[in-house]
Amino acid sequence: MIYFTDGTKESFLTAFLAAYSDDEAYITSSQAQLALGQKSVFVGANPARAARAEQRLLSFDKDCIEELTMLLRSGEPEREQLAFGYLKFLSEERRPVRGMLAKSEVLAAQECLARVTREIHRLHGFVRFLECESGALYAPIVPKADICDLLVPHFQKRLQGIPFVLHDVPRKKAAVCDGKRCFAAPLEQAQIVLSASETQWQQLWRKYYQSVNLPSREKLKQIRGNMPVRYWRVLTELH
């Protein structure tokens, strides 16, 4: 049986309870086409059932719900199934299992979590702010995982008082910080007016990027590994 969720944590936890005893269960939120003969059911969020599942899981491992949230943010097509395998194994063992790396369900979940954490770390570096006429900063980002709001505390600490917007372009949403408060908002397309000196600073940055390179030691494969191509479109120095 395929259990379709609406992508939220509550819907997933409701589906988790429904699918727990089903050996053929497959939980997903993607709208992929079904193969012939496959049975499916849509499981909407049931707050009471979700809370019950959450309490039960927390009694086995106090950090597992935070891990679940990160897994669901990963943006990977198999994320719900991966979380299902991990949490089902946790429920069977009734103790924290994240160290049991020889178990494929645990390893898959831990590797997915590491990918999300790594992307957060990378994006702390790969965000490029544009200065607007008002002095506010705007940065378009193209993350694989849904982590826009998780980047905010890092920039809030270092840009004290400066308003900024992190715009997750593919997901059409933004994390906005007005200098004091932060909130999330849907944002399809941003209309910004750049400050008078913005283009000059961008040109200086490009000049700097070219100057520090040693052309006789080109290693393009290495640069793609360290700085995946999907981020290049927002990196000022590469345009």
């Binding site: 400066i162 520090v212 390179n213 052309p215 080109e218 290495q222 700085m227």
Partner: peptide, 27 residues
């Protein structure tokens, strides 16, 4: 950050990589 701009990042952070494979972290 003591009321200005910036703070340290204990683990270190790369902001870009040049074609020679080196990381750009500092100006």
């Amino acid at each position: 950050n003591a009321g200005g701009m910036g703070n340290g990042y204990a683990a270190g952070l790369c902001h870009s990589f040049t074609p020679d494979g080196r990381c750009v972290s500092l100006l």
